[in-house]
Amino acid sequence: MTLTRVLTAVAAIVVALVLQVTVFPHVAWQGIVPNLVLLVVVAAALTRGPEFAAVIGFVGGVALDLAPPADHVAGRWALALVLVGYLAGRLRQGQKPTTTTVVLTVAGASFVGSSVFALTGVLLDDPGLDVGGLLTVVLVAVLWDVLLTPFVLPPLMGMFRKLEPEQRVLV
């Protein structure tokens, strides 16, 4: 079952990544697209908890760092999404995710993820944007991710939940 779960998560990441770089540039605002890989990580965090989400975050981040159009220093998205997966997983512990908590988690996760990525760029002296530009990009990305949440999160969370029914029996 674990293997199926991991394979499905990897498949979700691949689909999210390909859509993110090929389809969404057609509807992007100023080149800013929704971060679908981050949404997959948040869905994993809300259903399966911080450990699984951190691993998925690492895999998705490395894919974002290495798949073709990317040219930044590898590992930056990996670090950002590991933290996002862990924090989002910790936040939701103890309650069943409601619509409001899902939307708030996505907004927070998107903000933290993009900011961590931007900050590592500043630390590495990657020539990037000025502070105003960074903030614009991060906030528009949050808006995009929240906008896509009602369409992307429910099916993903349903998928992650269905993947391991026997653990519920064990508890």
Binding site: P50, A54, V73, G75, V82, Q93
Partner: peptide, 30 residues
Amino acid sequence: LHDLDVPRRPSRALLVALVLASVSLITLDH
């Protein structure tokens, strides 16, 4: 009662390992 299916205390070691892996990847590439 709440039918939770994740352990209450997530492992810190896993987080530390993944963060370290990311940081070493960044260092290697940089």
